[in-house]
Design a protein around this nucleic acid. Sequence first.
DNA 1: TTGCAAATGTGAGGATTAGTCGCATTTTGA
DNA 2: TCAAAATGCGACTAATCCTCACATTTGCAA
Lengths: 213, 213
Amino acid sequence: MDGKVTAKPDQAAIASPRRSPSQQRSRERVERMLAAASALIAEQGSDAMRMGEVAERAGVSIGSLYQFFPDKRAIVWALAERYTAESQACISAALKDVSDAEGLRRSFSELVDIYYQLFLAEPVMRDIWSGTQADKALRELELADSRANADFLLAVLKRIRPDADPIELETAAFLVWQMGEAAVRLAISVERDEGDRLVAAYKRMALRELVEE
Amino acid sequence: MDGKVTAKPDQAAIASPRRSPSQQRSRERVERMLAAASALIAEQGSDAMRMGEVAERAGVSIGSLYQFFPDKRAIVWALAERYTAESQACISAALKDVSDAEGLRRSFSELVDIYYQLFLAEPVMRDIWSGTQADKALRELELADSRANADFLLAVLKRIRPDADPIELETAAFLVWQMGEAAVRLAISVERDEGDRLVAAYKRMALRELVEE
DNA sequence: TTGCAAATGTGAGGATTAGTCGCATTTTGA
DNA sequence: TCAAAATGCGACTAATCCTCACATTTGCAA
């Protein structure tokens, strides 16, 4: 147990590749590893995903897998980061130019629908956010992501209601956003009909809080 | 809506004791096992809990542990069941006699506070609901529990607004309840100040939905 | 009391799987 | 060209869940 790897203290050691692929060849292999992991998570869930199976499906050896990912969580993390970056861009775009209540109504409703569809359609996201919450680092990524997204909403609120207490607006934005994530997670875990009703009810509830206060 | 816990699909097959302790001696030993598991979960989280450690701390052998619990999840499940039963009784009591909007305001506010305090104070609950969600059976227990609790709320709503569409009321009750659980989980994972603000904001939001529609 | 079946208790070992390590092969760059 | 760096490999180690064959205790009918 003589530590050659110990140098890095925290987050880098947790989530970043053990070694960055610098050659074209290895970059492609890393992509294959991620694709294999993604497929396996979609099929069985991240918990049941076996590292050996990822390696086999990617056509690489176990050793190569661990060359670029320090541990199993790092692979899931890497996928989660991609999805959050993607959805953040989407959210930012949807809310960037909103500056009045009516615009918020429209954009917010669309946004929730997009989010709902995304979760319905993407098994990996579904698993990562509802299944692997056991992982502390992932929970923190989600929380940070949630805050970042809530900030887009907060920016809109500040434009619409410039005189309101900023702390109150921040609380409202964060809460409403987090509720939305919970609503979507709930919606995808029940029958489709009920899920649709729940998402619609959430939209009403959220908008009432956001624009009718 | 019979106010009774609806039996989940194959909960017995998944989680029930492999063998029911019939002698006083073994009943006490099972209690010791659960107590040990509870303590370990509080200290390290259910994921890091080791079966060997549970056995050692309970003063029994590994074999005895598996005599009464078919697997690791069963121990966590058994603890989760106790807590949900406890909190359901509490919720039922708080909402049983509410029959008007003002009563709901008062009781709901108290209820949320109790829930919040419970999560703040009880590390095992905290871990089970935020950490071990990777376990499918536990997710289902939570969902069933959530529905059962929402039913108490639904009963109140039906008394207060007898003319409203029952499906809509059901959706509202279920959503509001689920949002509450999400709000509390969120609140305990941030700074205390912010958590308090979030819970307060949730209360306002929920009551507006429940009594001002 | 006695005898015996059922209940309970035990812990070494089987089975699985995350992660390591020394060495082989390929690429880079001077 | 060729040495150093990067990449690739897979048998092996370690940790951990859980089983199983056997030992011990308890309940109870004769």
